[in-house]
Design a binder for these strands. Structure first.
Lengths: 220, 220
DNA sequence: TTCGTTACATACCGGTTGGTATGAACTGAG
DNA sequence: CTCAGTTCATACCAACCGGTATGTAACGAA
């Protein structure tokens, strides 16, 4: 049987690739990587399997590219923007970032959770390449926090007897945990409360803060 | 074609059901709920589909039962055991629990993560019944912590100007986040460090602790 | 012993999945 | 123009999935 009529090619190749990455991110964010359907991704991207398998060798490679080329950039942009310009008070900038993240999320984003954390929990034990790429992204996040804290130690706004990398790892873990619990609770209030508690913890890191540092937690 | 030889029924029904639940927990823990194969679960349990669909109406019901009848019990037993008997110093008991959890996990458990958190991140947005059961389990966990903290407020070992439920929610979130990040980092050291940081945060909640409370973090 | 109920085992099914084979339209170099 | 390489579209496939239909051995009551 002869081939039917054929659509014109109007997009540049890298545009097609980018549409695939964004459609894949959405589908993976909703269903998880394993349950993500290539057909759904293709429908959303408006291309067919030929395009997909021209740009990526298999489904795993598509997932890797989503982490490296989409998720990583979004995440670092959202969490490290205020810390990039060597702020005078890194702790305040970090607290402001926490509060802004809690306030600016849509209900849908709360429901679906952090794409990187979702992928981490699902794929880390199943695929070593996924795990390495995910951990590298988390590490860049932690590193951004740690650098800011170290600069705070240099300018005297952060206690010098703490390890910036360990603080950064804890803050990232507590933030991701807060998103995850708020997701299963379906509660923006819980997200706000937890991130506020984390912000209060950061006050503990100020040199002069010994007296008044502690979670007030009367509301939030 | 006539039926072949047939195995004897040697197990009681509830034993079969229990074997299904435990096999399902293992498979779900490894692959996630959606990717969990019923055939794999059946092979591990040593029964066939007839047995499965006699005890459970469908795959989802099996998953719900795993949460309610297996995961919930294991989790509360591991995290609330030291807090049940109205300890004189609930904060110390909580810190001891954190340290014991960090120390007693096998590498395989670190790699696979917390079964409840895995299910929460995967299934909460996809299945409202899953979400409710998972959140109820998390809530029992938070409630156990909150009750212990409230008793500490009564006997004077915990500051009275904090909300026990909010503290409990934060501790659970930070703990789960720590497990999740350690999982994707493949690092028991990160788990220990983060839970130690969380234990240090709990010192902040002591009435007299204003001066010395803070993350020492010189090592861990 | 009879007989209904429980507790499975076996065989089978339609649907979906990731992946492939093939070919055609388009592009740019020469 | 020619032609090779790029960029897809279409058709197709084997494997696996959750679920079902059917049958039967064991059990308990009468």
């Amino acid at each position: 049987m002869p081939r039917q009529r054929r659509k014109r090619r109007v997009r540049a190749p890298d545009v097609t690739r980018q549409r695939l990455l964004e459609a894949a991110l959405q589908e993976i964010h909703r269903r998880g990587f394993q349950a993500a359907s290539l057909d759904t991704i293709l429908a959303r991207a408006g291309v067919t399997k030929g395009a997909l398998y021209h740009h990526f060798p298999d489904k795993a490679a598509l997932g890797y590219a989503v982490v490296d080329e989409v998720v990583k950039g979004l995440l670092l942009e959202r969490w490290l923007a205020l810390l990039e310009g060597s702020p005078a008070d890194p702790l305040a900038a970090l607290q402001q970032t926490l509060r802004h993240r809690a306030a600016s999320l849509t209900p849908g984003e709360i429901e679906l959770g952090c794409p990187l954390n979702n992928l981490a929990q699902e794929m880390s034990p199943l695929d070593e390449q996924f795990r390495r790429r995910i951990d590298a992204t988390f590490d860049a996040w932690r590193d951004g926090f740690a650098r800011a804290l170290a600069r705070g130690q240099e300018n005297g706004t952060v206690r010098r007897d703490v390890d910036p990398r360990k603080i950064a790892a804890f803050v990232v873990a507590a933030a991701e945990g807060s998103f995850g619990l708020a997701k299963s609770a379906g509660s923006r209030a819980m997200l706000r409360s937890n991130l506020e508690m984390l912000a209060t913890f950061l006050d503990t890191l100020r040199p002069e803060a010994a007296a008044r540092a502690a979670p007030s937690a009367s509301r939030g």
